[in-house]
Each structure stands twice: as structure tokens, then as C-alpha cells.
Amino acid sequence: MAGAIAQARPYRCVLSRLNSTQRETDAMPTFNIQLFEGRTQEEKRKFVEAITRTTCETLGCEPGSVDIILTDVKRENWATAGKLWSEQ
């Protein structure tokens, strides 16, 4: 899976922070991931399954505690190093 993720187009990931009353093992990780639009449902399904599996193996949590929010972004709305992806 690492090779597949490494070859994927850019994405960002944010893991939610714990509040002061939560124990680390009680945390429900929430990932907010922005992707260039155009991926298929099957690609997204495989991606979220892999993230969930790896998160559970790493944090020792149950799959039901892992939330993933995917946001499709148009290339015209994403820039890197001062250049829009739609113009590269």
C-alpha cells in the first residue's frame, strides 16, 4: 500500500487533537483529506480502507472510531509554490 500512496496525487491529512479530558486510547481519529477531483469510488474505497486499517494497527483503536472526510478539490483551486495546478 505504501507504493500506491506514494504514487498518488497530493493529499493532506489532519489528525484531530485530544482534549484535556480524553485519554489517548479513547480518541476518535478524524482525518480531513483533500484530493484532486477525478478519483473513482473504487480508488477512494481502497484509500479509506487502507487508512482505517493502518490507523487501527498503529493506534490500537476499532475501525468504527476512525472518521475520514474526503474533499474533492478542482486543480484551479489548489496552488503549490505560487502556481495553480491547473496551469502546470
Rank of each mutant, 00 (worst) to 15 (best):
E37R: 13
R39L: 13
K44T: 09
M1F: 05
L15C: 12
I69K: 11
L18F: 06
A4Y: 14
T71P: 01
T40Q: 10
T25C: 09
G3S: 13
S20M: 06
E37V: 05
F36H: 05
L84G: 11
K83R: 12
T71S: 08
E24A: 07
L18K: 14
L18P: 06
K46R: 07
G82T: 01
E37Y: 03
A8P: 05
E42W: 01
G38P: 12
A4Q: 15
T80F: 13
A27S: 04
K44G: 05
E37W: 03
Y11Q: 04
G3L: 11
E49Y: 06
R53W: 04
S20H: 12
S86I: 05
I33G: 09
R45H: 11
A79P: 07
W85M: 02
W78Y: 11
A6H: 00
A4H: 12
C56F: 10
V48A: 02
W78P: 01
N19M: 10
R17V: 07
G82K: 01
R53A: 12
I5L: 15
M28D: 08
T30L: 15
Q7F: 00
K83T: 12
A4N: 14
L84R: 15
T30E: 09
C61A: 11
S86G: 03
F36T: 04
F36V: 05
M28H: 13
Y11T: 00
A27L: 11
Y11G: 00
T71D: 03
I69Y: 12
A4W: 15
G82V: 01
L35V: 09
L84T: 08
P29M: 01
E43P: 04
E57L: 05
A4D: 15
R23G: 05
V14F: 15
A6S: 03
Y11L: 07
N77H: 15
S65T: 11
E62Q: 10
A27H: 06
E43K: 12
G60R: 02
